[in-house]
Simulated assay, not measured.
Amino acid sequence: MTYASLAVVVVLACSAVTAVAVATERRRGRAPSRLVAVTVLTALVLLVLTVVFDSAMVAADLFRYDESALVGLRIGLAPVEDLAWPVATALLLPSLAALLEGRARVRDAAGAPGTPRLVDTAPAGAARLPEVHR
């Protein structure tokens, strides 16, 4: 198995999770474009960091790749296959956060046993901190 074939499998699996998260964003009361924007921004940052630091590590000869398992394309000194991992991460983590946050809100709204609740114990007329809404 080449690095590229493994990367394709992982990125496709992460893409499936992202597709589910984007498709269910409206049901959680949020615009899907928000999750897409977070995912794209995360991917761009991680891609830039990967190219910079992979190139630095290859230049420092910290590790070597099996050239027969590489496609041959490089960005800087980093093989293009290395860019699959930040893409997979950028697809998976915001999507999982959106999916799990939705489940936590539903559970909290249902008043699941063991869910901590804030109780207002301040006397009437006491100074209060402003409420924070998400």
Rank of each mutant, 00 (worst) to 15 (best):
P32C: 06
V45A: 12
F53R: 15
T50Y: 10
S68H: 07
I75V: 15
S55K: 03
R27E: 12
S55M: 06
L62S: 09
D54W: 03
V58M: 11
R26T: 07
A31N: 12
F63L: 13
A69T: 01
S33M: 14
S68L: 10
V48K: 12
R74I: 01
E67W: 04
A37D: 08
Y65R: 08
V38H: 14
V48H: 10
L70A: 02
A43S: 08
R34M: 13
V36Q: 04
A59Q: 08
L70H: 05
V52G: 01
L41N: 13
D61H: 11
R64N: 07
R34H: 10
L49E: 09
V36W: 06
D54G: 02
V40E: 01
V71A: 11
L44W: 04
M57V: 02
L35K: 08
L47D: 03
A23Y: 07
S55V: 00
A69H: 12
D61S: 09
A23T: 05
T42R: 14
A23R: 07
A23E: 09
L73P: 00
A56F: 11
R28A: 10
V45Y: 13
L73C: 00
R74V: 00
G72K: 14
L73G: 00
L46W: 07
R26W: 09
R74D: 06
L41C: 10
L70N: 04
L62D: 06
D66L: 05
I75M: 14
I75A: 12
M57S: 13
R74K: 13
R30T: 01
P32F: 03
V45P: 00
V52Y: 12
T50F: 10
R64I: 02
A59F: 04
M57N: 11
V45G: 04
L46N: 04
F63Y: 15
D61P: 00
R64Y: 04
L41G: 13
A31F: 05
T39W: 13
V48G: 13
D66S: 03
R34G: 07
V58P: 03
E25M: 12
T42L: 15
P32N: 00
S55F: 01
Y65E: 08
L46R: 04
V36F: 05
R64Q: 13
L47Q: 10
D54K: 06
S55N: 02
L49T: 03
F63I: 09
R74F: 07
A37F: 14
A23G: 11
V51T: 03
P32A: 02
A23H: 05
S68E: 11
V40P: 01
A31M: 09
L35G: 03
R64G: 01
L46V: 03
L35I: 06
L47K: 05
S33H: 12
D66V: 02
L35V: 03
S33E: 15
R34Q: 14
L49H: 10
V36H: 07
R64E: 12
A56T: 08
L73E: 11
E67I: 06
V71R: 15
T50P: 01
T24N: 09
D66W: 01
T39A: 05
R27K: 14
G72C: 05
V48T: 11
R30I: 03
R34F: 12
F53I: 10
V52T: 10
